[in-house]
Design a protein around this nucleic acid. Sequence first.
DNA 1: CGTTCGATGCACT
DNA 2: GTGCATCGAACGT
Length: 224
Amino acid sequence: MPTRSDADGRLRRSFYDRPTLDVARDLLGKALVHRRGSTVCSGTIVEVEAYIGETDPACHAAPGPTTRNAPLYGPPGYSYVYLSYGIHCLVNAVTEAEGFPAAVLIRALEPLEGIAAMRRRRARATQGRATARPQEDHELCRGPGNLTAALGITLAENRIDLLGNRLFVEDRGILVTRVVRGPRIGISAGIARPWRFAIEGNPAVSKPTSSRRPVALDGPARRE
DNA sequence: CGTTCGATGCACT
DNA sequence: GTGCATCGAACGT
């Protein structure tokens, strides 16, 4: 079978040019890396969600092509970053063939490199607000808005090639065995689709509302 | 345990 | 003008 990463472990275009659910599951355990100048921040991807096509009511492509969602219709292996609730930038990896709008939202990382920079950025992001600063390392990138703040990913990182040297994903040989799967978080439509994946038991995984608990992939079927 | 709510910017109707 | 793929504190039961 073809390798989907290069000699350095960088994921190739062919990794992203696949069914989105496969890409989502396979992104678990990979390392997301952001370089800004000499500052490098990275973390192991521990939680993702898939957004697939115009028929997925929670996907930004649901209304058809617009200015904002244009990256979803572009080639796979590009970033899609947008502003959520006027406060947080959320980062996706575009998947599937060009023309089919789909992506994987990166929801949580376990910090690897650049932890001091992550703490600085998170502290800056909470300035002027009565919000507690993260104490433990695994809190730095827990949640899609938190991880972009920690890594310094902004709208300036929208629609950039994930095969470049600025924002990319690496295979560092981590084998993920236990995966939990459940409904996506924070959406009002499309809740029935279990398109959220996370590494079981990882402390950096964001906490869903109790009514939306994930279930183990191997576990018993969950009642609707 | 659970739900509510403010902060905040912008794409979209 | 409306509604978010959020976060975390505050408050209700």
